[in-house]
Each structure stands twice: as structure tokens, then as C-alpha cells.
């Protein structure tokens, strides 16, 4: 990674954490729906970047969110997990072109990008809520939270991507 890339990654990390804990954790749309937008960090981490570094950074990101929201290690666990499965999801969503390192997130067809985001967000949220609620008898609550928060997160993530995508030159 270039120096500027490192700087951008650090800035993105801090901005997303602050955005998440100061604003998004308190939205409580319809009483319980909060978007967890910090996964954006994992989604747009350079696709050909170092995988161990990504897993470590995801852990750091998750544990920071956990510290702020007093939730033990649930965000850390969910983040580490999606960082781990990200290569497989990338292959699943973008097919062969990923293997040739040709994918740029803002240049792929919309449906492929959407699949990638939705799958990772849903996996992350499902794991997050299962660990947080931690009881099989509340499986409906887990599924409901996953679905609603997942939709909310996806919408916000798509908006952020649109806002901050660089113009393709």
C-alpha cells in the first residue's frame, strides 16, 4: 500500500467508528432498528490487499465499536468473521473477474456489487444479533433484527458509496 492509502485507511477507520457510535447507534428507527455502517470499512478495503491485515484491522474495528457500546465481543466476532469469508464472497459475487484482479468496486455492474454488499451485511448482522441475544428461543427476534437492520445498513452503505465514489477517469 502507498503512504496515502494507509492514511486514507486510518482516517476511514476513525470516521466510521465515530459515525457509528455517536450517531448511528442512537437512531433506533421504529424502536430497535439501527444501521451498522462500519462494515463499509471491510467492504471497501483494497480487494487485493493483505488478508491477515484485513482480519486484524476488522478485529480492531469491531472491538472499538464493542468498547463504545458495552457489548462484549459481538461486533469483533462478526467483523472478523466477514473479513475471513470476504474472499469467498468476492469470488461468489464477481466470478472469474475477481481471480484476475480486475474488479474495481465502483466499476462493476450494479447487481454484482449489490450481491456482494447484501451477502456480507446479512452474514455480519445475523452473527452479530445471534451473539448479542444469545438464545434460541428468540430466533424470531434475531431474524427480524437481522432483516430490518440489514436493509437499513445496505441503504446507508449504498448512499455513502455513491457520495464518496471517485469519478471514474
Amino acid at each position: 500500500m502507498q503512504n496515502s492509502d494507509i492514511l486514507i485507511t486510518i482516517l476511514r477507520f476513525i470516521t466510521l467508528v465515530l459515525l457509528q457510535v455517536l450517531i448511528l447507534n442512537h437512531i433506533n428507527f421504529m424502536g430497535f432498528v439501527n444501521p451498522y455502517v462500519y462494515v463499509l470499512f471491510i467492504l471497501i478495503f483494497p480487494l487485493n490487499g493483505n488478508k491477515s491485515l484485513l482480519i486484524f484491522l476488522s478485529f480492531l474495528l469491531g472491538i472499538t465499536i464493542d468498547i463504545f457500546s458495552d457489548s462484549g465481543g459481538v461486533h469483533a466476532a462478526a467483523s472478523v468473521f466477514i473479513a475471513f469469508i470476504r474472499p469467498y464472497i468476492l469470488k461468489f459475487a464477481f466470478g472469474v473477474s475477481y481471480e484476475y484482479n480486475m474488479v474495481k468496486l465502483n466499476k462493476v455492474p450494479f447487481t454484482e456489487r449489490m450481491t456482494y454488499i447484501v451477502v456480507l451485511v446479512l452474514v455480519h448482522h445475523f452473527l452479530l444479533f445471534s451473539l448479542e441475544i444469545f438464545s434460541l428461543s428468540h430466533i424470531l427476534l434475531i431474524l427480524k433484527s437481522t432483516l430490518f437492520s440489514g436493509i437499513f445498513s445496505t441503504v446507508v452503505i449504498l448512499c455513502l458509496l455513491l457520495l464518496f465514489s471517485r469519478k471514474s477517469s
Binding site: 482480519i55 486484524f56 478485529f59 469491531g62 472491538i63 464493542d66 457489548s71 462484549g72 465481543g73 459481538v74 469483533a76 466476532a77 472478523v80 468473521f81 475471513f84 451473539l131 448479542e132 444469545f134
Partner: peptide
């Protein structure tokens, strides 16, 4: 890292 975070959760 995964086991560590699950541990924290528990």
C-alpha cells in the same frame, strides 16, 4: 481472534 471475541462475549 474469533475465539477471543466469542470469549469476550460469553
Amino acid at each position: 481472534l474469533f475465539v477471543f471475541s466469542i470469549g469476550l462475549t460469553v
